[in-house]
Write a protein that binds this DNA or RNA. Structure first.
Lengths: 203, 203
DNA sequence: ATCGTAGGCGTACATCGTACGCTTAAAATC
DNA sequence: GATTTTAAGCGTACGATGTACGCCTACGAT
């Protein structure tokens, strides 16, 4: 009966993500996104309740790129989880500026719930149960979001590392920082994750 | 020659932290902090360059409570690092609302640099060196900031967990969420950390 | 052709950070 | 003790932002 909507939520999310990718997270305002869509600022509110919901849409869009299909059943469980985690890293790495939003909206993302369910399936098959399963999943997601944020806010190859490398009051930090420039984000992410996973043991 | 300052930076940081502890991070504005100090809004700018610097002061104040003294030399290295990490958790847990600031200002905190130097000392004594030492330190700090944020934004005993426990489309998530309420933040933090540490091996 | 409903927009306001320029306290000098 | 000098402290004002509210209007159903 009424007038039909002229935009889909997918278009909203895409426009917001485009703004973020182009001009950074600070540029994400109701006004810029509305302009990106060619509608007025308040027109946006016919589609979302407010900025928070818009951010949630962006997060969900980014995570949509993550394949949550588990590896073949005979894959060692640590490897299977490692693959799932690496997929998240790649998807998020394609839109680095959204990292801060990930933390705030992570728990509202259906796709990430699906991802977690898959990880839990692997953990359960590996013999995990009860509180140990809780802490295992939490440790994995905690590690992931932590390292992703570290990489976004202070990449090992970035300026901050150079500053530390030049300090003489913290010799170990300085020497470590000099080694750091050569470590890629992928290697960094993977090294810590496999350490964590190999330290996790069912029961 | 000029008029002397009537406030110390310590007082500034304490006032800002008081606002955060009392009314949450959203309440941290230049105006509220100035009011807390009994000065005018713009008076604050005689002490800090802007909001960013004020936030950095708060972070530094919170981290000041962390003892960076390493345990006795004959302590196993994993235990020594575990103790250092736990001290951070306790200090941060005393002011949960500052957690988001930790991420953004972590790299500017001298006290945290000191803390990292101590951890690197332990890692080095354990036989770590080169890129492996880089990734080990990064994994530890990444895990810590990640889990601390998870605990702050979505505590296992919180409402979000209850919502997940009630969902039937993700049975493993639901069942895991039911187990989660019984896990304390300390146990959660410690379980993941000791898994990570025991998975880390020098060379 | 008409009508009801939701789409879309413009205005307006509260809140925030902060630039700018004034007044004034008080240490240093005489 | 009077004067000078320098930064302390403040008030006003402005741009940016999220969003409440009420208007007009497009368009499917009748």
């Amino acid at each position: 009966m009424p007038r039909p909507r002229s935009l889909t939520t997918a278009q909203l999310a895409a426009a917001a993500l485009a703004v973020i990718d182009r001009d950074g997270l600070d540029a994400l305002t109701m006004r810029t996104v509305a302009a990106e869509l060619g509608i007025s600022t308040m027109g946006l509110y016919r589609y979302v309740d407010g900025r928070d919901q818009l951010e949630a849409l962006v997060v969900e869009l980014v995570l949509t790129d993550v394949d949550t299909t588990p590896a073949a059943g005979d894959t060692p469980w640590r490897g299977a989880i490692g693959t799932l985690a690496e997929r998240v890293r790649v998807a998020v790495g394609a839109h680095p500026a959204v990292v801060p939003l990930l933390m705030t909206h992570r728990h509202r993302s259906p796709h990430l719930l699906r991802w977690s369910e898959t990880v839990l399936g692997i953990l359960t098959a590996a013999g995990y149960d009860g509180p140990a399963r809780v802490t295992a999943l939490r440790a994995i997601t905690g590690y992931m979001v932590g390292v992703l944020q570290l990489q976004h806010l202070g990449p090992l190859a970035g300026a901050g590392t150079k500053v530390i490398a030049a300090q003489s009051d913290f010799p170990l930090m300085a020497s470590t920082a000099r080694d750091a420039a050569a470590v890629t984000p992928e290697a960094e992410f993977g090294a810590g994750l496999s350490a964590l996973l190999s330290g996790l043991t069912p029961r």
